[in-house]
Write a protein that binds this DNA or RNA. Structure first.
Lengths: 213, 213
DNA sequence: GTCTATAACCTGATAGAC
DNA sequence: GTCTATCAGGTTATAGAC
């Protein structure tokens, strides 16, 4: 694995909160790329400009650092989800809003999508507390149930349906490096143009898949 | 990471092909769980009952072993895909056949699904040769194009559409350890009953998403 | 709070006996 | 073909100076 050069040889700030956050940022990138077991504290330190001794000073060990990264990520994503206030929308509008937001959020924060998928694959969701699922899937499940009761949607099972919708929303981003070969050489799947195109198509497919009126 | 005990302390077989294959099997499991960088040759050896010296004897180093695992997996999957002979079916039947097969194959070989996704996330598809994409997506793309030309499908872009369909087919398996908390405690997402239920719902959603007649 | 230096351990790979 | 023993290098974590 290639060495990662120091991004910025900044002067020591002696700002605890700033240092802590920069370690979290660097760790998020590293964990997203190689997972908990592949990550090297040395490599994380190099990305931040502080030494790896700092990682142990702030987080004690690598596992705790990973935990902290996951917690921050779930909290942020939960806040974004809440900010949509989908309960006030019609089921159909609610699902559209969520689908677009999940898809765009994943594409704009590919590390978050990677980390969540890696967490399931490599750690069997050990560090992905049950409450996070509620945060992430709750509003979608509620909207689907509302829509099904009102007869707006043809499907009958909110759980399987939600899993499939989220799969459609994030697979493009998660598997981008495998999928890229489908397009002409050099195409960036996460460029604004490609994303807009993908989002539009996906939104239509999701609503059609639901049999939305 | 927990130690993995020897599965079977079998008597040395001195059967080169058998040993080679058992190493590949063990490596497939290990790589699927922790990826190329997280995998430990010691751990792979422990799963097989031979020593790690054998891994170097047969594959020289860990990277080559990984490459061999990926090649075998792509070949097997390609053979399964070809055996469907979807070119002889109507576009709609072809897509149905592929969707069901991809979904079921992933669920019955979760390691394969994991490895392909991990390969993209961790190695940017470096060991996932371009030809493999043709093998895996070719028949689906052809079927979609045929269907679009014949006016059987409402969608117009085979690439984005294919990515979304495959996403729906494998996300359930790939993210099973994150999703499991949506269902009552102890539910096995890959049990025959759950799978049949999921497959049926997914098939309907896929066809609806295509606007299939 | 941050650094350097180093301890203690782990891991991939090799050598050589059988 | 398979094993045991071992080396060389890398990795986490700690100690202690500043």
């Amino acid at each position: 694995m290639e060495k990662i050069a120091k991004i910025a040889v900044k002067a020591p700030t002696r700002d605890a909160e700033a240092t802590r956050n920069s370690i979290l940022d660097a760790a998020e990138q590293e964990f997203a790329k190689v997972g908990l077991w592949g990550a090297r504290t040395e490599s994380i330190a190099a990305r931040t400009g502080v030494t790896k001794a700092m990682i142990h000073y702030y987080f004690e060990n690598k596992e705790n650092l990973y935990r902290a990264v996951m917690e921050r990520l779930i909290m942020r994503r939960g806040a974004e989800m809440e900010s949509l206030h989908v309960a006030e929308l019609s089921p159909c509008e609610a699902v559209s809003t969520i689908v677009r937001n999940v898809l765009m959020y994943a594409a704009e924060h590919p590390n978050v999508a990677s980390l969540i998928v890696l967490e399931g694959l490599q750690n069997q969701g050990k560090y992905y507390c049950e409450t996070s699922l509620g945060t992430l899937y709750g509003p979608l499940l509620d909207s689907l149930k509302r829509g099904m009761e009102a007869g707006d949607f043809a499907t009958a099972d909110p759980l399987h349906t939600a899993a499939n919708l989220i799969g459609m929303c994030i697979y493009y981003t998660v598997a981008r490096d495998n999928l890229k070969n489908l397009w002409p050489e050099g195409t960036n799947l996460l460029s604004p143009d490609m994303l807009e195109e993908h989002c539009e198509i996906t939104l239509k497919m999701c609503l059609a898949a639901l049999g939305a009126k």
